[in-house]
Design a protein around this nucleic acid. Structure first.
Lengths: 137, 137
DNA sequence: GGTGGTTTTGACAATGGTTGTCAGTCTTGA
DNA sequence: TCAAGACTGACAACCATTGTCAAAACCACC
C-alpha cells in the first residue's frame, strides 16, 4: 500500500499538451524533452521548450509518465505502461538499435533484489557495441 | 555500471590526486564532484574544480570509482569496493547501495551482442527498489 | 642536484540541459 | 458573453560539466 495518493489535479486541455501527449503515445522508447521539442517543431506543431518541460514535469508528477536519466544525465520520459519492457543493443557509432528480450535477466534482477530485501523493483539495462556495418567501415 | 576494458594506464602522483583520493577513502557514500571540490576547499587543500572533474573521470575510466546519476542528474562518485565489474542495487528512497556481481548477466550480454554481430561490447545495468528500512517506514 | 620532455593544473570561457520570469493568451465555469 | 486565473512562449538565468591553454609540477635520465 503506497501512501502517496495525490488525486491528480485537473489540468486544462490545451493544444500544446495534446501535442505532447500525441508524441508520447506514438513513442515506444524513452525520449528526452529536447528530442520531443524538436519533433514537435519538425511536424509544425510548434510548442515552446519551456512548455514541453513543464508539461512533462506535470505528467511525471501525476505519475502518467516514467522519468529516467540517460547516461549523459539527460532526463528521458516515457508513457507509463505496464507491459513487459525490453532492452536495447545500441551501436555506439551509428545508433542502430536492436530490441532485446531477456526474461532470464528479469528473473535474476528480481531475485537479487529479493535476496537483499528490496521491494518494488525495477531496473535499467542497455548493451552498447559496434554494429557489423560500422565495424566493417 | 558500465564495463570498460581499458588497461589502466599509469598516472603521475600529484598532491591534487592524493587529496581527491583521501576524500574518497574517507567517504562511505556517493559524493558529487561539486561536493568533493567544496570539501577540499574547506580543508585548505585547494584543488581546481576542473581538476576534480578530470581526476574523477580518470578514476572512473580506470574502474577505481563507481559513477551513478543522482535523481537531480548530478554525477556522483564512490570508491569501488569490488575490483571486478559489478552492478548496483540502489534504494530509490534513501540511496542505500548494494554492489552486485552478475557473471551470468555478463555472459548473457556478450552472447546477445555476438548473436547480432556487435563487437567491442559494454553494458550498463542498475537495479532500483525500496530497501527494507525505507519499506518499513 | 640539474635538465628536458610530458603530464597535469587552474583560471576562465563556453556549452547545454533545465528552470525562472512575466506579459500576453486561452480555457473554463458561471 | 465574461471575468478569473491557468497556461504559454520568448528569453534570461542557472548550474553542472567540459574545453582551452599558458604556467607549474613530475619523473626519468644525466
Amino acid at each position: 500500500m503506497t501512501v502517496r495518493e495525490q488525486p491528480a489535479k485537473e489540468h486544462r486541455r490545451t493544444r500544446q499538451r495534446a501535442a505532447v501527449d500525441d508524441v508520447l503515445d506514438e513513442t515506444e522508447d524513452f525520449i528526452s524533452a529536447q528530442e520531443l521539442h524538436a519533433l514537435l517543431r519538425a511536424r509544425g506543431a510548434g510548442v515552446g521548450l519551456a512548455t514541453v518541460y513543464r508539461t512533462l514535469q506535470t505528467l511525471a508528477d501525476d505519475g502518467r509518465v516514467d522519468v529516467l536519466r540517460s547516461d549523459a544525465g539527460e532526463a528521458v520520459y516515457r508513457r507509463c505502461v505496464r507491459e513487459e519492457h525490453h532492452h536495447h543493443l545500441v551501436c555506439r557509432s551509428c545508433g542502430a538499435t536492436v530490441e532485446i528480450a531477456g526474461p532470464a535477466v528479469e528473473r535474476w534482477a528480481k531475485s537479487v533484489a529479493d535476496q537483499h530485501g528490496y521491494s518494488d523493483v525495477s531496473h535499467t539495462l542497455e548493451i552498447f557495441g559496434t554494429c557489423p556495418r560500422c565495424a566493417a567501415a
